[in-house]
Design a binder for these strands. Structure first.
Length: 469
RNA sequence: GGCGCGGUAGCAAAGUGGUAAUGCAGUGGACUGCAACUCCUCCAUCGUCGGUUCGAUUCCGACCCGCGCCUCCA
């Protein structure tokens, strides 16, 4: 199967045709850095991380751009509340974001442009729009986009411009020509951070920075533009209006949007305040569990953040690591070496079909069963299958940890039972002696004692291993 | 109100015009001193009602329910 992906613009799954054969230019809307990242952000980050890893594994030359919006009203407000410089706030949040990404093993994008570093590009684009009457300046130094000049407005989010006009809220004292118009540039109020412009000191509006940065990094037209579930309207709709009016070219060929993360059947969001930060979650769960959890549903489906679901992810991952445990020395092979493998084929087909990670996981689980069965009789063959499983896991950014360590850690970030490995292993030795002397009461006593504290002992011919539940 | 998405086993979640993957949990069995792991086995007629069809969970229509966007949010 060739690569197909769901395009928000057409609301259909489409065959993917790159602008340049073999090459994919992709822009993903990143974070507005005024607060810590939450699991909703993590979902987008992980989804496009896995998408990029997979595409590269299939030989695509992916140029992945993900921006940082580091100037914006929310940033200014928060900095003001904190009584700090806006740039101190954004620097701190960018550092935190990078730490979170690293913890989740999210590979950095090829280019990570910052809005404040592209002020000239932003101003150039605004100027073009003003020159072509797609935008107008007002007396207070604002510049607005003239939506009525762009008849295709609404095509991404499937909205009728007339309906938008009817539904738009008109603010008191509004200086806009049309309630649908949106700010490209905002004149600075006294004391506010600002940049010089032909319309006086000010700062960019919310949407223009993405148009400017994406065009700057990837050209007038590029292949894929991605982002979170709340971006099609108005953010991406406005990007299209800005960019297509400014360049006269089609802006983006394929639009991809991730599904929402929910809590108690409600969207997790900053405005609802029901969000869990990435670091909250990582305090409790191993990063791989979080990744696995996010990949256990299709990237476009809503997903529920809950203890139960994270626990289920943990248990599922443990099945993988249990199979890998005896094969710590086996290295992943390259996907090229797997041509002809049934599991690899299923995996690739699933991923080529709009990145169906769940379907791909099903193939991996079937591979696990195969490994567990064959390991009993044919070590060489089992090792080959393990190498394959690790290779597929690498595309997802999972199964790269030491299986023993993962299982002994119980998937938790840190042990809370106060038992050290030395203590546990000392008890295992004592139990071995007891068993040798057929003192099964003592042997079982030790097992029970440890089990009560979450440590499971497992006997095999090679000896006793342990793991945390 | 406008636009869109979804309702599949206890839970999670894929998928297909010809009676439904996978994971967790559970059942029965093999293995084990016991147990765990592992393997085998069992466990769903796919929201409701109609229509098209030889045949629909899969296509069409209506309805019910849930959710998202329409205001800042990934």
């Amino acid at each position: 199967m060739t690569l197909h992906l769901y395009n928000t613009l057409t609301r259909k799954k489409e065959f993917f045709k790159p602008s340049t054969p073999g090459k994919i230019n992709m822009y993903v809307c990143g974070i507005t850095v005024y607060d810590l990242c939450h699991i909703g952000h993590a979902r987008v980050l992980v989804a496009f991380d896995v998408i990029t890893r997979f595409l590269r594994s299939q030989g695509w030359d992916v140029n992945y751009v993900r921006n940082i919006t580091d100037i914006d009203d929310k940033i200014l407000n928060r900095a003001d509340e904190n009584g700090e410089l806006f740039s101190d706030l954004t620097d701190r949040m960018i550092d935190a974001m990078h730490e979170d990404e690293k913890a989740l093993d999210i590979l950095p994008p090829d280019i990570e442009p910052r809005a404040t570093a592209h002020m000239d590009d932003i101003l150039d684009m605004v100027e073009i729009l003003v020159d072509n009457h797609y935008a107008y300046a007002t007396d207070n130094g604002d510049v607005y986009y003239r939506v009525s000049r762009f008849p295709e407005y609404g095509k991404l989010s499937n909205r009728n411009p007339e309906d938008l006009l009817a539904g738009a809220r008109v603010e008191v004292g509004d200086i806009k020509e049309d309630p649908r118009d949106f700010a490209l540039w905002k004149g600075a109020k006294p004391g506010e951070v600002s940049w010089e412009s032909p319309w006086g000191a000010g700062r960019p509006g919310w949407h223009i920075e993405c148009s400017a940065m994406s065009t700057c990094c990837l050209g007038n037209t590029f292949d894929i533009h991605g982002g979170g579930p709340d971006l099609p309207f108005p953010h991406h709709e406005n990007e299209i209006a800005q960019s297509e009016a400014a360049t006269g070219k089609k802006y983006v060929n394929y639009w991809m949007h991730a599904g929402a993360v929910r809590v108690d059947n409600e969207k997790m969001s900053k405005s609802l305040g029901n969000f869990f930060t990435i670091r909250d979650v990582l305090q409790k769960y191993h990063p791989e569990i979080v990744r696995y959890f996010l990949l256990s549903s299709h990237y476009r489906s809503p997903i529920s953040y809950s203890e139960d679901n994270l626990l289920e992810a943990k248990n599922g991952l443990e099945r993988f690591y249990t199979a890998l445990r005896p094969f710590a020395d086996v290295k992943a092979v390259t996907l090229d070496e797997l041509k002809g493998s049934e599991y690899h084929q299923r995996f690739v087909d699933a991923m080529n079909d709009d990145f169906n990670t769940r379907e791909a996981l099903a193939a991996m689980y079937d591979l696990v069963r195969d490994i567990n069965t064959i390991a009993k009789t044919d070590d060489d063959k089992a090792r080959a299958l393990v190498a394959e499983l690790k290779a597929l896991g690498a595309v997802f950014g999972i199964l790269g940890a030491d299986a023993e360590a993962f299982l002994q850690g119980g998937g938790l970030t840190e042990s809370t039972d106060g038992l050290t490995a030395e203590v546990i292993e000392g008890l295992i030795e004592e139990r071995a002696t007891a068993k040798k002397n057929s003192d099964f009461d003592r042997a079982d006593g030790i097992r029970k004692e440890l089990l009560a504290r979450g440590v499971v002992l497992e006997d095999s011919r090679e000896g006793t291993t342990w793991r945390r539940e």
